[in-house]
Structure formats: C-alpha cells, structure tokens
Design a protein around this nucleic acid. Structure first.
Length: 201
DNA sequence: CAATAGATCATCT
DNA sequence: GATGATCTATTGC
C-alpha cells in the first residue's frame, strides 16, 4: 500500500501543537482534534472520529468514579495520553483535556491512515481496504502500536504526538451519541468528519 | 446485509 | 465475581 505522505512530507505539511492546545473543555478539544494528525514513530493518521468524556457528572466516563490508579492521569494537566486496557484484549487512546482537577478527556475513535501504511497492515494482520485499517479505537492503537506503555506521556512532543496541518482541511463535523456505552448513552458527544470513509462502524 | 457469540483480563465492588 | 469507551468470525436471512 502506498503512503499518502512520506515521513518527511508529513513533517513538512504539519506542525506540532503546543501543550496549550489541549487546555480546553473536552467537547471543544474533541472538535479541535478532528483533522489533526496522530503520529507514533513511523506511523501516522488523520483523526476523523472522537468522543468527549466529561467529569464526575458523566457516568460513562472512567473519571466519574473518582481518582484511582488507572484514572490518575485524567486528574492531572492536559495534553497527556490516557491509555487503558479493555475487554481483555484492546487498548484505547484518550487525550487529557481541560486543566488539572478537571478530568475531561477525548477518546480517539478512528484514523485515516497517512504514513507507514504497510507497517500498519502487518501489525493488524489486515487484508481489507485501507479504510478498515484504523477505523475503531482498538484498531488504531494496534495499527500505531500504542499501548499502556504510553500512559501519561505528553502529546506535544516525544514519540507519540499530535500535529496540525499547516493548511487546514475543509470538512463538516457531525454530532451523534457515543458508541458502545450504557450510561448517558444519548448524550451527543461523538464527533465525526462527515462523509469520511474511515469512520468506525 | 444484520445479528450474535466468543475471546480474555484489568479494574473495581 | 461482574463488568466493560471492542473486534472478529460465524451464522442466518
């Protein structure tokens, strides 16, 4: 599979975000992350689907149960990775939002693969179309090899980073309820790049 | 195509 | 001991 950008091209077309980028409420950050690029090592993809998880009032959020060993990073400063293990086999990546003491975060749910696509195919043992390579929270962490080893890492620099296109892509944002939860299941906190082929199912 | 079952374990009760 | 911010394969129409 051909990459959309080489590593060098992607670096040129984007710029790293500052840590302040993340210092806003989870809903705003969830919208702002759409169209940005998630980079881990030689692999990268455009974020096309996100979900906001709020604080104590949001019973679907892990943070609603308060500060535990697992949720510790959510209560700290923004711009950190909250990676957790679920269903005995999947890792999910969240971006910590807001400010210390406000445990909002954004779940990254789907990527449009850009760079290192052949490597992603191998890691996922995937045979299908590119659009199915990273279109789900567990799929994209496997494709970019993101695990709990990245728990707490800052995302403005280092191996795992968020970058912005210098020329912002044009798209419309769709809003729907969040996927796969039972509590607060009708809250409109899922944000998608409308019409993008790489959305989750 | 839609619905369902099964995998599998960290976390919290 | 039950649950869960999922994915894949399989079954059935």
């Amino acid at each position: 599979m051909e990459d959309v950008y080489s590593e060098a091209q992607l670096k040129r077309a984007t710029s790293g975000v500052k840590i302040e980028f993340f210092a806003r409420p989870a809903v705003e950050l969830a919208r702002g992350l759409l169209g940005c690029v998630l980079v881990h090592g030689r692999t990268a993809g455009t974020i096309v689907e996100t979900e906001a998880y709020l604080g104590l009032s949001d019973l679907a959020a892990h943070a609603s149960r308060g500060l535990t060993e697992r949720t510790r990073v959510l209560f700290g400063p923004p711009g950190r990775a909250y990676v957790y293990f679920i269903y005995g086999m999947h890792e999910c990546l969240n971006v910590v939002a807001d400010r210390a003491g406000e445990p909002g975060c954004v779940l990254i749910r789907a990527l449009e693969p850009l760079t290192g696509i052949a490597e992603m195919y191998e890691r996922r043992n995937w045979k299908g179309a590119v659009r199915g390579l990273a279109n789900g929270p567990g799929k994209l962490t496997q494709a970019l090899r993101i695990t709990r080893a990245q728990y707490g890492q800052r995302l403005d620099r280092g191996e795992l980073t968020i970058r912005e296109f210098r020329e912002k892509p044009e798209f419309e944002i769709g809003v729907t309820p969040r996927i796969g939860i039972t509590k607060c299941a009708d809250w409109p906190l899922r944000f998608v790049w409308l019409g993008n082929a790489c959305l989750s199912k």
